[in-house]
């Protein structure tokens, strides 16, 4: 359905005026320079709320002008002077992109995307406006569900379970004769490759000298 365009009406409250001329639908002729911003709000896809029209409002410049939407979603904001306006659809549940509407002194409309950083950038959007819900607002955190895998891969649990396994399973493996053999071999290998111990070196360094001297003295004694 096409949005109903209500034009500002000039009323000349004057007795002698020709009444049929009192209504003038041409906006540009109005001295006050008041314009109408029109558009349509596309209802959100999931129509769970029955009266979304009540929940939805149109804010121009953060509530300087407020528009209300009709049953079919169309809206019109009347009596707006020339200037640049940010038109927002305010709905507590659905997010809509704001649009900047510029009305020049000749009554020409231009609608473009709002860019607060590069304010001079122009990405035009069609006018009359067509506002579509981007997504539903996600206000809430999602509660974590208790999952077995989360529990098992918890480092604490792993730390508890691994030693338990070592304690419970390893002794059983030990009882197995084959593994015993294997283990023995491993220990033998370890022994074979044993390096000369540091303590021995130290003993030889510090303790060794004195002992040899002592034994030599004893040898001499014995020969006499």
């Amino acid at each position: 359905m096409k949005p109903i365009s209500f034009t500002s009406i000039l009323v000349i409250v004057c007795v002698f005026a020709n009444v049929s001329n009192a209504i003038n639908s041409v906006e540009e002729d109005i001295g006050s320079g008041r314009y109408v911003i029109e558009g349509r709000v596309v209802p959100p896809e999931e129509q769970e709320q029955s009266n979304w029209q009540i929940q939805t409002r149109i804010h121009v410049n953060g509530g300087e002008y407020i528009g209300f939407i009709k049953e079919d979603g169309s809206f019109a904001i009347h009596n707006v002077p020339t200037g640049s306006y940010v038109v927002e659809v305010v709905n507590p549940d659905y997010m809509y992109d704001p649009v900047r509407v510029e009305i020049n002194s000749k009554g020409k409309y231009r609608a473009r995307r709002v860019n607060y950083i590069q304010t001079s950038q122009v990405i035009q959007v069609p006018y009359p406006l067509r506002m579509k819900a981007l997504s539903r607002f996600r206000y809430f955190q999602i509660r974590e569900q208790w999952r077995m895998t989360d529990f098992l891969f918890n480092p604490m649990v792993i730390m508890m379970i691994l030693p338990l396994l070592l304690i419970m399973v390893l002794p059983k493996m030990m009882n197995d004769p084959e593994t015993k053999e294997d283990l023995k071999q491993i220990t033998n290998l370890a022994k074979m490759s044993e390096m000369p111990e540091m303590s021995e070196v130290f003993t030889n360094l510090f303790g060794g000298g004195t002992t040899t001297k002592a034994s030599k003295a004893k040898q001499i004694k014995k020969r006499q």
Binding site: I9, V36, Q53, K70, H78
Partner: peptide
């Protein structure tokens, strides 16, 4: 909202 019109 059912209808609206402006009057100056």
């Amino acid at each position: 909202l059912l209808w609206e019109w402006s009057l100056t």
